[in-house]
């Protein structure tokens, strides 16, 4: 039990520092594309600590107070149901008690909890952002579910560890074994990470930074911290599912950084879709590829 708790703390720390590092790179990288120098690498950490050091925070009652807590708790809970490493007792969290479908649903708990806080604050922009997020979710989840369903039915298990274990050599990585599923999932991945062109939720020029419009001080600090951790959870999930998992932290970082780089490039290059355009796009190209892959599987059996 103590080992599990220690492991969980380790996972939180690892994702936090990984996330801050990656997003530090993200800001510098973006700055270089913008032809400027950019902030120091640890700027995100400074920002985060500064937010916790604010002297006051806005409040709209107890539900508003709980929103960021649920959000962070949801993030950490889903983190603990993802196995970080394979062939290792470390950083497994509670993943033996869960599976991929559970995880997909767990990942929605936090945002919906925060949506309650956004709703209770009464900021119309925030609710618009939440609605956008929920609508966009349709577009993200459907191709994603299809692609992971291909994996799950292909490997005959819904457990993330077992899917990860099955990929023992490079040619057995699911991105090689199920290329169509991988491509479909990449679309969802970019969307889930909130990169352009699917970043409708917090669009400042449209909905005034959306769900975050009313959060400040420590609340914003929690939201910022969980955002980077949540991104890392998604990255690690993708590494587990498609990139063959990792046997130690360094391989994990290398693989997840490759994915992160992809997200960063796509996000930098595109303007943003409207909500319905994003969903329509997701339900067109990725879904067709996915359905094609299912049909191919069906006929070849």
């Amino acid at each position: 039990m103590l080992f599990t708790i220690f492991n969980s703390l380790l996972a939180v720390l690892l994702t936090y520092s990984m996330g801050m590092l990656y997003y530090g790179f993200y800001r510098i990288g973006n700055a270089r594309i913008h032809r400027r120098v950019g902030p120091p690498l640890w700027q995100n950490v400074i920002d985060n600590i500064k937010l916790f050091a604010k002297r006051e925070a806005p409040g709209h009652g107890i539900m508003f107070h709980l929103g960021p807590v649920i959000m962070t708790a949801g993030t950490i809970t889903s983190m603990l149901f993802v196995p970080f490493l394979k062939d290792s007792a470390w950083l497994q969290g509670f993943s033996s008690y869960g599976n991929l479908i559970l995880l997909i649903y767990l990942m929605v708990v936090g945002p919906l909890g925060n949506a309650l806080a956004v709703g209770v604050s009464g900021v119309p922009f925030g609710v618009m952002g939440v609605t956008r997020g929920l609508t966009r979710l349709i577009g993200l989840e459907v191709p994603f579910f299809l692609s992971v369903a291909l994996l799950m039915s292909g490997s005959g298990t819904i457990s993330i560890s077992e899917i990860m274990m099955a990929q023992d050599s490079f040619s057995n990585w699911n991105m090689m074994a199920h290329p169509a599923a991988f491509i479909v999932s990449l679309f969802s991945f970019v969307g889930m990470m909130g990169a352009s062109p699917f970043d409708v939720v917090g669009a400042p020029v449209e909905v005034y930074s959306g769900p975050q419009a009313e959060f400040g001080g420590k609340y914003l600090g929690f939201l910022a911290a969980q955002r980077v951790m949540f991104s890392m959870v998604k990255l690690i999930l993708w590494v587990d599912l498609f990139l063959g998992g990792a046997t130690n932290v360094f391989i994990l970082m290398a693989k997840s950084f490759a994915l992160f780089f992809f997200y960063f490039i796509v996000g930098a290059a595109f303007p943003r879709f409207k909500t319905e355009q994003a969903v329509d796009f997701m339900l067109k190209l990725p879904l067709i590829i996915g359905i094609g892959a299912v049909l191919v599987r069906f006929w070849s059996l």
Binding site: R36, P39, P40, Q212, A213, F215
Partner: peptide, 13 residues
């Protein structure tokens, strides 16, 4: 941004 100055959308932030 070199000096840590970045934009915020709403006054709360």
């Amino acid at each position: 941004e070199r000096f840590g100055v970045r934009g915020a959308a709403t006054p709360r932030q």
